[in-house]
Computed example of a mutant assay.
Amino acid sequence: MPDAPSPTPSPVLPALPPLTAQAEHLVELGVHELAGTTAEELRAFAEHAGPARTDALLAVHPDRAPASALAPLLRHEGKPGFVVTDMPDVDDFAPYAVELPEAPFYLVTGLDRGDHMANWSPDEALPALTEAHRTPLLLTEGIHWVLQQPAALARNLCFMTIGSRLRKPNGTYDARTPAIWISNGTGRDGRERRNAPKVGWCWWNNRHTWLGFASTTGRKEEGEYR
């Protein structure tokens, strides 16, 4: 495994908003409509899970709210998020090495951006996360995280979401690996998208000094917390 690129400690992120505030924010963004449910159901989930909790992320199952629909809701410096043009199949990236609750809403706990793994490849990071009893975030979970906690996405401190991968018809996996970072406004992104949140990809065996590996200690349905 490569060494951490710098001894500088990662910045401490603020606590997540309370679950009721997270639910309300998703309602304001219309995520409940994307998910084919009601605002009341989303609010009720947060209430039952613990309305004042700030240690868990409220996530909508990717089958209900796919990445292509969530990405444009992201904001950074007033710029809306987008998916790169060479990832038209973004919603085909499915859970990999991850077991998801079957419920439409669930909680993600113990979030970590994985800054200490910057300059590692996904192939190197996955076994290290497994050894630490953590699982990588899905792309949709990473988007939910930034929606609720914009400080989780910072220039030169962005992250990969290797819990989502694309399985090809022959059974092997596409080498593209989803990540969320901040656009420089170059190339096909367009200058108008400089500083916009960007859903893109990197190769499975490549390293990037500015990309960590976001992960979680667990995913639970609301009822499992009671």
Rank of each mutant, 00 (worst) to 15 (best):
D92P: 03
T135D: 04
M117V: 03
M117A: 13
A69I: 13
S164W: 08
T217G: 14
L42W: 01
Y173I: 05
G223Y: 12
R188D: 13
P150Q: 03
N156E: 15
Q22V: 06
G81R: 00
R193C: 13
N206T: 12
N206S: 14
P72K: 03
F105A: 07
F213V: 11
W120A: 08
F82M: 05
N195D: 15
P7G: 14
G187D: 12
V27I: 12
L29V: 04
V84D: 05
G50D: 01
V31D: 02
R191D: 07
N156L: 15
N119H: 15
F159K: 09
H116D: 11
L73D: 01
G110W: 00
H25K: 13
A67G: 14
A179V: 13
S68C: 06
T217A: 09
L137P: 00
T140A: 05
D89K: 05
F213G: 06
K220I: 09
A4M: 05
P88T: 04
Y173Q: 02
V60N: 00
A44Y: 06
E40M: 13
A49K: 01
P2D: 03
L16I: 09
G212Y: 02
K220Y: 14
R226A: 07
G223K: 09
L137I: 06
V27A: 06
T20N: 04
W201A: 06
T37S: 08
Y106I: 06
P51R: 14
V31F: 05
Y225H: 10
H61A: 08
N170Q: 07
E24F: 11
K168Q: 12
W145G: 08
T135K: 05
L34A: 07
P9M: 05
V60E: 00
H32R: 06
E131S: 11
S164Y: 05
A94V: 09
T130V: 04
A132F: 02
L42D: 00
Y96P: 13
